[in-house]
Design a protein around this nucleic acid. Structure first.
Ligand SMILES: [Zn+2]
Ligand SMILES: [Zn+2]
Ligand SMILES: [Zn+2]
Ligand SMILES: [Zn+2]
Lengths: 133, 133
DNA sequence: TAACGCATTGTTATATTATAACATTATTAT
DNA sequence: ATAATAATGTTATAATATAACAATGCGTTA
């Protein structure tokens, strides 16, 4: 039996490293531009690395913005329960780490007969700074 | 003073009509293809209608899928509190109408000092049908 | 009625985001 | 060694969305 991957490949490391240093969500093509000096030449190389990193929870995708951000929440072993706050003015994004919220959503059930294995929640508003402008 | 728009324009009506009849999320270019017989020729005509319809809550965007679906929840006067369940196998999408959930999320506060005016939540899993395959 | 403000429309071109397809190389298990 | 799986490299193309500009329609108000 082939084991589940436990290490990161070369391209995955390069992309993760760049996204982690950014400390804010990045667009795929901005990542591409910035890692070209490291040898990644084509969009697919970035997207493939991102796909894997998202799958294993090192990176999350901000769906409403098509951006990618490093996970700040050490418990996100996989990207199956994510919540973000997004400022609609400055686009600052913060990963929400709130155990009550995650418990509530992970246990959520409705009458559809569907058992949810994953969720993504995006809150929008104005951050402190932008509110006081 | 110019009043807030209370009616739908021609293109907005055409697009909304098509999306409502579909009863499932549609992609923008599929909408475009299908309303070409009604005279809408360019992507922008569709996107502009969608933008407005989303703004007034008649249509919601499924962000993780880049699709658009008619609101099934008569209380969604504006698209500021949306929740969906998405089957990862057949892509069936249902708008969740659960007052406890919406109350919980609308009142959610964390320690970021941010007041949220809007959220979008997407649950993923397998629908009843797909679970029993 | 005329002038204004603003939403909408029409149109062409282009930007942005993401994947298809195929050949090759690397890694690990048996 | 052989096979299975994962990752890479590369070119081309698909899919999603917006820029820019000119024109029209419609309600407000002078
Ligand atoms: Zn995380
Ligand atoms: Zn802000
Ligand atoms: Zn709705
Ligand atoms: Zn299904």
């Amino acid at each position: 039996m082939v084991q589940k991957q436990e290490y990161l490949s070369k391209n995955q490391k390069i992309v993760l490293d760049h996204v982690e240093k950014a400390n804010q969500p990045l667009k795929a093509y901005s990542i591409l531009f910035n890692v070209q000096k490291k040898g990644l030449k084509a969009p697919l190389q970035v997207y493939r690395a991102l796909d894997k990193l998202v799958e294993i929870g090192k990176i999350h995708k901000i769906e409403s913005r098509n951006t990618f951000v490093a996970c700040k929440n050490s418990n996100c072993v996989v990207s199956n329960a994510t919540a973000f706050s997004i400022c609609e003015s400055c686009e600052k994004v913060t990963e929400i780490n709130n155990s009550k919220l995650s418990k509530y959503l992970s246990n959520f059930e409705d009458n559809s007969g569907m058992k949810y294995s994953k969720y993504n929640l995006e809150f929008f508003g104005l951050c402190k700074k932008c509110k006081n402008k």
